[in-house]
Each structure stands twice: as structure tokens, then as C-alpha cells.
Amino acid sequence: MSTQQMHIDPYERNWMIFSGILLVLFAVAVSVAAFGMGIQVPAPEQRVDPRTVATDPSSPWSNPGLREVSPGKYDAYVLAHAVPNWEFLPKELSVPVGSSVSFYVTSSDVQHGFKIQDTNVNFMVIPGQVSKLTVTFDKPGTYNYICTEYCGSGHGVMYGSITVTP
């Protein structure tokens, strides 16, 4: 006996169709940026033991800093912690302009955030996990990296800086 029909006002039907198309367009734009322009979100990189990641000599984060992989290409191992002090190690980095730097960041204690100002490097730093994103520094200057997740009293003073030399 299902002669019951959905009665939808034609204006509202058109609005729903329009909304659907609009959302699809946003999805396309996002996909272009992700798959066409290489602007991607972090992917699982590595698991580590947060209890030893900062102290085990075989762990790169026991000696955080830049490693030149090839001319103009660097890996940056950054350790975030709140104990004993709220800081990123190293607190300073320097690369020449045009360098591509891949950041590998982890925490030896609580969750932190890592955001390099004026770049798309912005991710969670979770003990037990390694977060990785890459950035090419096209413009010289100073770029702060700041903690963006509550990690205790010193969260608001936790930052470092990258100097990109001309």
C-alpha cells in the first residue's frame, strides 16, 4: 500500500541537488591539492618506544638535529618533551634557502603539537609514534615551530626556530 510519496518542494529539491554538487566540488578541490599538488596529511611512519626514544644511542632522537641526505635535502629529527623542560630539541635549526627538509618528530612523554609557521607542516606529536612531513623553504627568513597541544604548564613557551639563510 506504499503509494506514499516523498513530497519535496521543488525549491528545496533544487537546493538539495545544488548542495550535493557543491560538496562534490569541495571534494574535488581537496583531492587536487592532495593528489595533484602533493599537499598530504601525515601517514604512519614508524613506531618507537617513548620510554627509550630519547636515551637509546641507536635512536636518532637521542641525538636530535639535521642530517644532510643529499645536497639541499635534509632529514630533521626533532624531539618534543615536557620533562624536564618544555622544549623541542634542537631549539634551533639552520638551512640554506631552497632546501627540502623532512621533519621526523616524536615525544618522550606526553602529546605535543608541532607547527612550523607559514608552512603546511602541522601535526600531532604522539609518544610511541613518529610524525613526518616535508617542506621546501623557498623564502629566506626565520620560521618558528611551536607546540600546539596542551602538554602541561610550559606549553605556551615551547617553541624553536629555523633560520633559512639566503
Binding site: 602533493g38 599537499i39 607559514d118 616535508t134
Partner: peptide, 9 residues
């Protein structure tokens, strides 16, 4: 703004 800040891979 996203596009202007460049790729991450």
C-alpha cells in the same frame, strides 16, 4: 592559503 604554503611530500 593551503595551496600557497606548498607541498608536504
Amino acid at each position: 592559503i593551503l595551496v600557497g604554503r606548498g607541498g608536504t611530500l
